[in-house]
Nucleic acid binder design. Structure first.
Lengths: 199, 199
DNA sequence: TACAAAATCACTAGTTTCAGTGATAAAAAC
DNA sequence: GTTTTTATCACTGAAACTAGTGATTTTGTA
């Protein structure tokens, strides 16, 4: 399995001592109480407590422990969150053995390590939003998101824009998809934090 | 009625020409197309389209028209919104004849007029939140609001904090009440904009 | 120790959102 | 002038949220 692969890669490195494996966020927290942990390498998507939650928890209660996040490059929102929450490293899930080792060494050396592709993705999100429209919101979607921020319901928005409620809901779904949010609240928060609203 | 009172007060002023009365936001928009309007004095709470919506609409499509908002001093959120949306003036609903006249003259003179009590309320909201706990969120409420911003549902929050879902929902209700929001999205937006989250 | 604020829990009912699927027409880009 | 994006609409069912009411227990503080 995937975990085993990482285990093997880490075992190759002399500077690495014990390695513990976990399949859920909660399990990681338990391990933290049992052992002296220096570094955590975590996937974003996990059952029970996902990587973002784990990261949040960690930076609050075990702020000295380093954490490197792994993820598919699904969307801006995720990248944004991980960086904002203060991860020490962030690399794509299917990277080379070498990059993983470099990341581990760098982070253990008290520096941050972000994969080139991650940095690029983040920059797109912050500065070059317009170029990458596939991930970006259309004008109509922004309009809808703004109104959602003003506390209007789908019905109210549909009346205001003279379109069907179904259309508004479709826009909402696309907004959630593009921003990588589960809730409207999250999408609006993302929009504010990433400056989507000030255009 | 209340409208008549204002009408009388305005009629006392030589610099005021015609006065039109409206009972809904939509009606105000219609009047704007029929007459040359310099100034609007609007209540926050109105049927069909409330004062905030009217304000938003106005600043978008009739940006030269001045607007003075009237409201009960219900909560921070409202004050915050009105200021952010760019009202030209803001006074409490039951103020003196003199203050209303001063406000009108000031705004017609291209300046802003905010009642002392309004300014004070706003300052509380921005700088002195802790002192006025009656309007402020309790630590637990802030915690819940933060988790809501992280896209957790009531159920998830209840599991995370080891409390009942009912309790979480009560916190949510109180948060909406205190922030003057109708939706969680609005409350989170308010929290971000007013700096509630950075503490 | 009282008084007040904060935190807790419960139940109902109506509304809204979210997720999943599928589809068409207009506009923009290539 | 064809492909892609954007905007539009529809339907279903489950999950989640909002509103209204009422109440008890902790905790903090005057």
């Amino acid at each position: 399995m995937f975990l085993e692969g990482i285990n093997t890669i880490l075992s190759d490195m002399q500077e690495i001592g014990d390695v513990h494996l976990a399949t859920e966020g909660k399990q990681v927290l338990r391990l933290l109480n049992q052992f002296e942990i220096d570094l955590i390498i975590s996937d974003i998507s996990m059952p029970k407590m996902d990587g973002i939650e784990l990261l949040t928890e960690l930076k609050k209660k075990h702020s000295s422990v380093k954490i490197i996040m792994l993820s598919m490059l699904d969307n801006h929102r995720t990248v944004h969150k991980v960086i904002q929450k203060g991860a020490d490293g962030f690399i794509p899930k299917f990277t080379s053995k070498e990059e993983l080792q470099t990341a581990v060494r760098t982070v253990l050396d008290n520096e941050q390590y972000f994969s080139e592709i991650i940095k690029q993705r983040y920059m797109e999100s912050v500065f070059e939003r317009k170029k990458y429209k596939n991930i970006e919101l259309s004008p109509r979607e922004k309009e809808v998101l703004n109104l959602l921020g003003d506390e209007l319901t789908s019905k109210e928005i549909s009346e205001k824009l003279f379109i069907s409620v179904n259309t508004v809901e479709t826009h909402r779904k696309n907004i959630l998809l593009k921003t990588g949010s589960k809730t409207t609240t999250g999408a609006v928060k993302y929009a504010i934090e990433s400056g989507l609203f000030d255009e």
